[in-house]
Nucleic acid binder design. Sequence first.
DNA 1: GCTAATCCATACCCTAAGAGTATCAAAGTC
DNA 2: GACTTTGATACTCTTAGGGTATGGATTAGC
Lengths: 305, 305
Amino acid sequence: MIDLRRLRAFVAVAEERHVTRAAERLGMQQPPLTRLLRGLEEELGVPLLRRLPRGVQPTEAGQVLLEEARAVLARAAELQEAVRRVARGETGRLAVGFTPSAALHPFVPAVLRAFREEAPGLRVELDEAGTTELADALQHGRLDAAFVRSPVGSVPGLLVEPVLDEPMVAALPDGHRLATAGEGTSALPLAALAAEAFILYRRPSGPGLYDAILAACRAAGFSPRVAQEAPRLPASLSLVAAGLGVSVVPASMRRLAVAGVAYRDLTDCPGLSAPLHLALRQAGLTAAVARFRSAVRRGAAGRSG
Amino acid sequence: MIDLRRLRAFVAVAEERHVTRAAERLGMQQPPLTRLLRGLEEELGVPLLRRLPRGVQPTEAGQVLLEEARAVLARAAELQEAVRRVARGETGRLAVGFTPSAALHPFVPAVLRAFREEAPGLRVELDEAGTTELADALQHGRLDAAFVRSPVGSVPGLLVEPVLDEPMVAALPDGHRLATAGEGTSALPLAALAAEAFILYRRPSGPGLYDAILAACRAAGFSPRVAQEAPRLPASLSLVAAGLGVSVVPASMRRLAVAGVAYRDLTDCPGLSAPLHLALRQAGLTAAVARFRSAVRRGAAGRSG
DNA sequence: GCTAATCCATACCCTAAGAGTATCAAAGTC
DNA sequence: GACTTTGATACTCTTAGGGTATGGATTAGC
């Protein structure tokens, strides 16, 4: 089969029209070059060079080979560069997923925007899905990184590292007695919600926060009465606004400014917080993924520090 | 530098996602294939395959390499075919030249048309020039074949072979006494033109016919009075039509049907004929040129036989 | 939970392609 | 006609690449 070394040799000779000079240019001696040329001619079964008294001249087939060989060599060089660029994470694809609640944290869009600017050659693809789907997609390589709320436990091969941690706040209907209580805007003990109807977001799409809230309530001495389960976090806020009950949501939800919802800081609920995690595949860390991770870390440090 | 064998090996492995099966497909054993892969990874400095418990999987860089390598390999295969096609004369360029007088012979356009149909992949380029320019162009490879009238003597490295031979005829102004003489349309002895003013075509653009006519006249016992030299053969016919004199032209010129010119066969002029030759480069006969030569021979045989 | 099977990696040997040195042969130049 | 130039040839040697044997890790099956 065709060998690139021979093509390189031929191109040099055809360009120099001189075997000895071409050998010099190729950093080799003339005899092996002559043999390389003969090998190429034998392989193709075609005379490629006309031997003149003074140098050589490509035949017509040689002319065609010269052009074709240049193209192949250029493509091969490009190949090398393309692979290296991908390896350096300058180019390629990076698929990032996030849960709906993670998407609502302003940090996520901010860090994605910053990373796009930092690595313009990378095609960043986004996907929103539930935590379990994200974990599955990560495992199977459909995703390279994912923002999740809870530490995705017990999924082998995944690396989950904390990014940010934010307190949870109570989301109350506007005009609710606890929203306008005499304490003003100071913190509300979690136990104050013991009698309220709770609106929580469905379990399968995000096991972490649901469990964390229930656990915190139990630790505060009550078991919350779950009046309604919303499919996703933003939907639960709408239900709160409709007066169907109260909810406990990450503090960053305040920025959503849902009409009809009042927020109050919570206190007396140790361990109740809404963490933001970055999940990665443990094996085969791509350079692009590594760059993304470092961008996330930098972003988190700049935010909390 | 990149080696196509390695690329072929990698493509097979990436496609099979299985080193052992790929080795089988490549007709080799598994260990050397593994080494080939490692060599490629070392050369690029990039991990290309993720080793799974069950087979392998290309990394992102490997995916890119797979696509690029396929492209390079396809191009390389194409190269091989392109060169072979040129060598077989199915493809490529064929530059054919002819003198103005040769161009007027109907055989030349006929054989060119036939050859174009016979070898549609060949780009046939035509060029009209004087005999000496044609010979020079042939020598320097700008032309591959040329139709000339006279055997281009003394040009080293050229091969000139006769194609056709046709008689010369007298070209007379309409109404000239010899054109309408009592002998009707029978042949006219060359000597009958002894007293006429001759219009001949300039020497440098085509030495052959000029000399042949002068020699024939001398053999017929007179030295022609050259009244005018036309730059090219067709121009001389215009001068004849204008009544400035008579001329002697190849019989095929009759088909030109220049208004005001009457033709008469010539007799008593042994050796006076207008040969048509094909001139070729002696060395490095391309397949395309060989095919053209054989087409010309076939055409000539079909015409005269 | 142990054995068997699968599959890639490693170790070692061997062949053969390719690079180097020395030299020849042919053609042009002074 | 001697010299120079330039590609071809002969021979040796290094090394990349292929083959065989085998190891090690993981999964599947009883």
